[in-house]
Amino acid sequence: MDSLLDRLHAVNVRAVDLTEAQLMLSRADQKTFTSEPVDLSLLLDEAAETLLPLAEKRRVSLHTYGGVADAVGSRALLRQLTTNLLHNAIIHNLPEDGRVWARTEVGQWSIELIVGNTGETLAPDLISTLTEPFQRGTDRVRSGLVGAGLGLAILKNIVQAHDGILTIAGRPAGGIRVSAVLPAGVGG
């Protein structure tokens, strides 16, 4: 009976997570948010602090840097962007001694959030599908990682809702580099 309850609980949690992910996707698609000044470097620091225990548990070193990177948009959605990018970079990494680095860069008219990691070398045709809804990387099923395959699709929509561009590229040594370029805020 306990195993049945555990399975039902797991199914329920997964259904709630999927529903929340779909709501987030819809909200970003519709641009139904209030814009305000947001410093992406502060959100990146908060995400790193929150995710440091996970990184340590998985033996992944986590490095963040960059100066003030003012954007204008939804603080909640941009927090989701930074947190999910770091979380993905930690989870989809080498089994031990992996690395994640994230930084903000400020240009004349834009700001950029860049997150990179070590990991498997991924085929370009797989990378090109990662932002499509319900797509997953090759290791998701066999590694026990669960998810609906909406994470990067949501992040792409968040970036597009902020008039930005999300790009994902494989690294020759393995892992990926994700870049979110957004218009600079008033001070940028």
Rank of each mutant, 00 (worst) to 15 (best):
D2N: 13
L5N: 10
L5A: 12
D6S: 12
H9D: 13
A10V: 01
V11W: 05
V11Y: 03
N12K: 13
N12D: 11
V16S: 09
D17A: 13
L18S: 10
T19M: 09
E20A: 10
A21K: 13
M24G: 05
M24Y: 01
L25V: 05
S26F: 14
S26L: 15
R27F: 03
A28E: 02
A28Q: 07
Q30Y: 06
T32I: 06
P37F: 00
P37D: 00
P37R: 01
L40C: 04
S41Y: 00
L42F: 00
L44P: 05
D45I: 09
A47Y: 01
A48R: 08
L51P: 08
P53E: 08
A55P: 06
A55G: 02
R58P: 07
R59L: 14
V60N: 03
V60Y: 03
V60S: 07
V68Q: 10
A69C: 09
V72I: 05
V72H: 02
S74R: 07
S74P: 08
A76G: 00
L77A: 05
L77Q: 12
R79Q: 11
Q80G: 02
L85F: 05
L85S: 06
N88E: 07
N88K: 08
A89S: 14
D97K: 11
D97M: 09
G98F: 09
G98T: 09
W101S: 11
W101F: 09
E105Y: 09
E105T: 12
V106S: 01
V106T: 15
Q108T: 14
Q108A: 13
W109H: 12
S110D: 14
I114W: 00
V115C: 06
V115K: 01
V115I: 12
N117D: 07
T118S: 15
E120Y: 04
E120I: 07
T121I: 15
A123T: 02
A123L: 14
A123K: 09
A123N: 11
L126V: 14
I127P: 03
L130H: 06
F134H: 15
Q135A: 12
T138N: 11
T138W: 04
D139E: 13
D139C: 15
V141Y: 08
R142G: 11
G144I: 10
L145P: 00
G147H: 06
G147T: 10
A148P: 07
A148S: 15
A148K: 04
G149L: 05
G149P: 04
G151S: 14
A153C: 08
I154F: 04
L155Y: 04
K156T: 00
N157D: 09
I158M: 07
Q160M: 09
Q160R: 14
D163A: 09
D163Y: 07
L166M: 15
L166H: 11
L166Q: 06
L166E: 07
I168A: 01
G170M: 03
G170I: 05
R171S: 02
P172Y: 11
A173Y: 02
A173E: 15
G174W: 08
G175P: 03
G175A: 04
I176K: 03
I176R: 04
R177L: 15
V181K: 05
L182E: 01
L182W: 01
A184D: 03
A184T: 05
A184N: 08
G185V: 02
V186P: 09
V186D: 13
V186A: 15
